[in-house]
Design a protein around this nucleic acid. Sequence first.
DNA 1: TTTTGTGAAAAGATTCACAGCG
DNA 2: CGCTGTGAATCTTTTCACAAAA
Lengths: 246, 246
Amino acid sequence: MAERFGRRIPEPTVVRLPVYQRVLSDLAMRSVPTVSSAELAEACGVNAAKVRKDLSYFGSYGTPGTGYDVGYLLGQIRRELGVDKERPVVICGVGNLGHALAGSPGFRTAGFHVVGLFDVEQARLGEVVAGTPVQHISELADVCRREQVTIAVVATPASVAQDVSETLAAAGVTAILNFAPAVLSLPDGVHVRHVDLSAELHVLAFYQAHPETASSRQNGAPRRADHPTQPTFSPGTVDNGSALAT
Amino acid sequence: MAERFGRRIPEPTVVRLPVYQRVLSDLAMRSVPTVSSAELAEACGVNAAKVRKDLSYFGSYGTPGTGYDVGYLLGQIRRELGVDKERPVVICGVGNLGHALAGSPGFRTAGFHVVGLFDVEQARLGEVVAGTPVQHISELADVCRREQVTIAVVATPASVAQDVSETLAAAGVTAILNFAPAVLSLPDGVHVRHVDLSAELHVLAFYQAHPETASSRQNGAPRRADHPTQPTFSPGTVDNGSALAT
DNA sequence: TTTTGTGAAAAGATTCACAGCG
DNA sequence: CGCTGTGAATCTTTTCACAAAA
């Protein structure tokens, strides 16, 4: 057992947890009983040492010589991620992207429950998207408070993202997933993650313009790839309803 | 002048470039002639030392006592990002998310030009989304080759993402923005960026479940915030058509 | 033997702090 | 003076490599 109670889990590790979770779900669904760090690493596109170190942060318990019990490990990660409880979220901005997110099985099935959709556009008010009606943004604060919402998605234009997120913060939201291309300044205690779709494309463009700087992303199977249980390619990704599109 | 020719720009720096670009565009549009690293840092949510270090990687040229010339710096960054030329992209999977991306001004205006939309769903074939008709995925390779496409977006279900991206790679695509919740294994030389929307939500959930591990994201204005030119909040984000939704 | 868990080393990124330019 | 550019110091993350568990 590694980390005593003063565990401070590195952010890169936290970001990898959902990946482990998804891969483990897959394995569980295919009734695979155990995985080694090497196999899990292969399936997640990272290396085995990293997997072991990551898992060690939350005192996980693999079996030397055997690996990790898939079900147990999955449970641990789910608990760590707080996915064991359903969480209400609201989505602000019901344009194309807001629509996509609202309808996404990924959101609906992953422990999140969309309890409100908000916009200002007359034409969109009242429209029912994936079972939830679009309300005017003026209702936002009330709904957040009534439903005890603490996580929100901002998918508005950049020009209103700051205002909307201040409203959210004031209504008790402490975690915001921001898709607007704008930097939000919010009180300490509000955790913001920013996903900037066109920025991602720019980053790709950069690497094309600079092949010399090419991603050292040598997805490291150490030494040799240990007995890959599956053919390296298309390792039977089960479509467990987590896709966001098509 | 810093970096001689053997410049190897750190990935975190590359990821920040599009942010600098956007903020500088804003400033340029508001006819601001120069920025200091402190001001730019404030607007980008990073700290001044980081801005200076980042910019120094590509031998940029600020003026001590004055700061950086907005127009010149913007031009430099644009050139670095390879945004000076229009780049053709294709989008695979025209579900909600694919729609959102295809219609996004962020994509259209940022130096990218959508030259193909692909799906398998009968119902969607022929539909015209933002000026581009949806074609059957069997056309994918031809179009990529004909149009010299090197950047692609994968917005399909996880179950087909590997196949689709192999097709892309075989047709000459070397940069893929993957929205499917699946790890892609592709030949070296193909650069993949993975955006996993539900994973982002999970990361937020994690931090809510673990407030002790709270983001050290002390967006560091060093010492004191130097003469902020703007009131700290809502610093006049111009809505220059880069919003993705609402 | 196989595979974990983990100290210790290495690599990488951020921040400091200051010399020197305008 | 104010502000850049950058070495050096610090902090963080990754990788190595191996003792011990099954």
